[in-house]
């Protein structure tokens, strides 16, 4: 299972500290999803080797308008393994689910963002994963948490109905905000998800990273065709 984290300067802990803590907590990997305007300076391979955990280079694209987002996704697509779009705005949500180059639409319900069956179907058609963000459930209390829970419920029902792909993340900004997989699964069960949904959502990050690494590999020609070194 993987977790997607924000690292310094987009959070309070470096990639290495997030990875070390995540490895302690039993994660198999971390996806670094720093916002595009606050990139982290790190050596993914060195961290992965030192702490025995996969480190995936990702980015969370934050834009005000769909056209700006489109440009940024195009820029980052070739440089990062995982491209996430910072959701929470209706126009941006729609842009993300209609664009197959986007891997994940993050927290679509945050702020004044909303989601509906049309977007859910578009996400399913284009293979854009919708994120269930547990950040507000873990960190907020009172009215804002009640709203976050209501939003998650709505999103869950839409995603399940459209059979759209999804990911789960606690979206931690420091190593102190990380929570272990078993805790996240237990929390998901307490708020209406099934344990399998939570595990699937945490696993989905690793499959996504693996697929994207495969298709950007030099030996990849097109779907179903790749160069095999053993063939003389």
């Amino acid at each position: 299972m993987y977790e997607a984290v924000h690292a310094h300067p987009d959070g309070d802990s470096t990639v290495a500290r997030q990875a070390l803590t995540a490895a302690d907590y039993g994660f198999d990997g971390v996806v670094v999803r720093n916002h595009g305007d606050e990139p982290a300076d790190y050596d993914a391979e060195a961290v992965a080797e030192a702490y025995g955990i996969d480190v995936v280079e990702g980015v969370e694209v934050r834009a005000d308008t769909p056209s700006q987002a489109s440009g940024l996704v195009g820029n980052h697509r070739s440089k990062h393994t995982v491209v996430v779009v910072h959701g929470g705005d209706r126009a941006i949500n729609r842009f993300a689910v209609e664009n197959p180059a986007v891997d994940v639409l993050a927290h679509p319900m945050r702020g004044d963002g909303d989601f509906n069956h049309v977007l859910a179907n578009a996400a399913a058609d284009n293979g854009v994963r919708v994120e269930f963000s547990l950040r507000q459930v873990l960190g907020d209390s009172g009215g804002s948490r009640v709203r976050a829970l209501g939003d998650l419920r709505k999103l869950r029902e839409l995603v399940a109905d459209a059979d759209a792909p999804y990911v789960v993340s606690a979206d931690p900004r420091s190593h102190l905000e990380l929570r272990a997989p078993r805790e996240l699964v237990a929390l998901g069960e307490a708020i209406g998800f099934t344990g399998d949904q939570m595990r699937e959502g945490l696993e989905a990050w690793s499959r996504l990273a693996e697929r994207n690494r495969r298709v950007t590999d030099d030996s990849f020609v097109e779907p179903g065709v790749r160069l095999d070194e053993d063939d003389g």
Binding site: L176, E177, E183, L187
Partner: peptide, 12 residues
């Protein structure tokens, strides 16, 4: 224990 685990996770 699972409910307790979930609640403990929410202590930030």
């Amino acid at each position: 224990t699972d409910a307790a685990r979930a609640a403990l996770a929410c202590i930030d």
